[in-house]
Amino acid sequence: MNRPLKPVYLEEKLEEIRSDGHQDYRSKSLPTWCPGCGYFSVAEGFTFALNRLGIDYKDVVVVSGIGCASRFPFFVSTYGFHTLHGRTLPVATGIKLANDALTVVAVGGDGDAFAIGGGHIPHAARRNINLTYIVFDNGIYGLTKGQTSPTSALGFRTSTTPYENGDEPLHPLMMLLSYRASWVGQAYAGRPHHLADMIATAMNHRGFSYLHVLSPCVTFDKTDRTYANLGMQVRDLPDDHDSGNLMGAMAEASHDDAPALGVFYKEDRPTLDEVMDATNKRSTAG
């Protein structure tokens, strides 16, 4: 097995990056991800999105759990809270409710989100808390060096499934749709420009926006979710896809072998802070 390599950045490359204004969103800590990791694309896309939306980074809080993806807050120069495994969404909910002027972005990996943290997602989604949740799905536990995850494919061999994974992988997009997330989209780390667009669109949504990012783990998955495989599998949502149609979105999301990229579903409904404001008004009326 390959060990994750220390990131090596060339000085001139750094200079080039720093001379570009949007890199102000990057912190002085260098990402600890393996070279070639799909997560770089997400970080890049995130900084692009913030630039495009013109959000002052003092007003941004990135909240994460535990895992490779959850290291994300350390690599951006916004406010950040690296919390506990699986608890990203409730912490983010508390932050957003306490100060709704903040732009809150929750990030995490597939294990953080759907294994240990799975119980929180439906509630964040149904309450329509006004934040963006980006899940970097590489189908493996990378930080602990390669164990199976809830999105690992059947037959996948890892250090904890040495005789092949026999557990049916769960289906994040269909789950989020049925949880009534008010914005559900999917992007692919191998298409960074589209990914950046999607992050910006998700953050621009009023309500709970869920962006699923398909991403290879170049270190611990040499066989399944590789750039080569994913690149062949992914497709765009059909031009005529109606993102206001929940059942249509479900149908598109159910194609396991050909994951579609784009906005599956979006809906305009009151956010949690709006609901809470209305409650507060009712409590003082009469």
């Binding site: 809080v61 909240v63 809270f81 919390t83 506990l84 608890r87 969404l89 409730p90 912490v91 983010a92 909910t93 508390g94 932050i95 957003k96 409710l97 306490a98 100060n99 903040l102 119980g119 929180h120 439906p122 509630h123 949690l272 809470m276």
Partner: peptide, 21 residues
């Protein structure tokens, strides 16, 4: 802000989030 959360973990997590903010 008053919210009944989905479990005690979420309750204290949100409390920490709000306190942090």
């Amino acid at each position: 802000q008053f919210l009944q959360t989905e479990d005690e973990i979420a309750a204290i997590a949100a409390t920490i989030g709000a306190a942090y903010a």
